[in-house]
Design a protein around this nucleic acid. Sequence first.
DNA 1: CTAACTTTGACACTTATTGTCAATAGAAAG
DNA 2: CTTTCTATTGACAATAAGTGTCAAAGTTAG
Lengths: 103, 103
Amino acid sequence: MSTETIGEKLRELREAKELPLRKVAALLDIDVAILSKMERGERKLSKDIVLKLADIYGHNPDELLVLFLSDKIMYEIQDEDLGEKALKVAEKKVKYLKANKNK
Amino acid sequence: MSTETIGEKLRELREAKELPLRKVAALLDIDVAILSKMERGERKLSKDIVLKLADIYGHNPDELLVLFLSDKIMYEIQDEDLGEKALKVAEKKVKYLKANKNK
DNA sequence: CTAACTTTGACACTTATTGTCAATAGAAAG
DNA sequence: CTTTCTATTGACAATAAGTGTCAAAGTTAG
């Protein structure tokens, strides 16, 4: 499933390694409470934390970053009827920018 | 072009009607400075303001909302190499949620 | 029960966002 | 050049949002 959130994915990875929040939080040098909340989507993650966790869990960082970014996108369009249309327009914009990045 | 920003579009609409910032700002009950900055992308717009402007300019609100939302999305993925992938994953998530909205 | 792990909520602190205002700049008209 | 209307800019205070820290309470396994 790619419908899971970055938090859910990170919890899966941590539990697969059988690492307690305590140890991972220590490696990240943050409070256990914050990491707990991040995994449950109660606190926002940062790109920096996501990359560090990819390293700690030995997981592909790009996959986690995509989940992280798509979560941020979902947050912007949640409950919006026009969300899907907005995503398509955003794709057009990205492609347009990529095609004209030299200018 | 759908590559324009919501701010640029709103300025176009206002100038097409030959309305000064002063008058539109009065209708919105906000400061002229804020409206000026919103049109130039220096301040964030709110959904509420966008809808009021659609009404003032007699323009399709959905089209403006899509531009507004896609701008917010673009802001989240700007400068990200994985932006396009994240958009596709977000689309999947939206479709998944829509298919399971009854549950 | 005890011990390790996790969740929750309160709090102070910092950063971002917002509204208000006045000064400045630009263009058109007399 | 001066007046007038319009738009931009930057400073400021007020508010909201995000962050880190801590302790208490809940959960689970032995």
